[in-house]
């Protein structure tokens, strides 16, 4: 079974390898400071105890007031997986450092996050709108982009239209 590293373990590793790089820790994830993230990722990849050589998944999440970029990193030899996150709070100019120098294969997933969420990845030399065309208005995966045509609500009969997101929730996931 792949061991899922908990937030505290990840933070301990990150602090050991790059002191001062951890912004905060939750039960499942470790948040890194954007300016120190690349240094920490480099060290986490090289260190024999963490050995996070494979960037499995990279995606962005829009939380109305901020964006989170989620990194799922795993090790083949140690058979464990960990979740790191980097936050960016500027909606107009959302910038996070690119992990392309660490895991080369991240470039396509970063392009996707840039295209659909409008997060700039500083240092990604191949960043472009990968799925939509240049000049497409806006970034569709942002929560304020548009809802379903006709204002339809999902759900089944009496459940339809309840608990929808008319007002932006702030801090949706574990505080």
């Amino acid at each position: 079974m792949t061991r899922e590293l908990v937030g505290e373990e990840l933070a301990a590793h990150a602090e050991r390898l790059a002191p001062g790089s951890v912004a905060k820790t939750t039960a499942t994830a470790c948040y890194l400071r954007p300016e120190r993230a690349i240094e920490a990722f480099q060290a986490l990849r090289r260190d024999s105890q963490t050995d996070l050589i494979h960037l499995t998944n990279l995606c962005g999440v829009d939380f109305w007031d901020h964006f989170e970029v989620v990194y799922h990193l795993q090790s083949f030899d140690r058979n464990h997986i960990g979740v790191f996150k980097v936050e960016t709070w500027d909606r107009e100019k959302a910038v996070v450092p690119s992990v392309m120098p660490v895991w080369f294969g991240a470039w396509m997933q970063e392009c996707e996050a840039y295209d659909l969420l409008g997060i700039h990845f500083e240092g990604n030399t191949r960043q472009h709108r990968i799925l939509l065309w240049e000049g497409f208005p806006g970034h569709p995966l942002r929560k304020d982009w548009l809802s379903m045509p006709g204002g339809l609500q999902p759900g089944l009969s009496e459940f339809a239209g309840t608990a929808r997101r008319e007002t932006p929730p702030v801090r949706v996931v574990e505080d």
């Binding site: 998944n57 759900g155 608990a163 929808r164």
Partner: peptide
């Protein structure tokens, strides 16, 4: 990758598509 906000639908629904990422090289 799913994020839930206790709503009836996923707050974030992300697919990690293997053939997309296999093209990165």
């Amino acid at each position: 990758y799913l994020v839930s906000d206790e709503g009836p639908s996923p707050y974030r629904f992300h697919i990690r598509p293997p053939s997309f990422i296999n093209l990165s090289a």
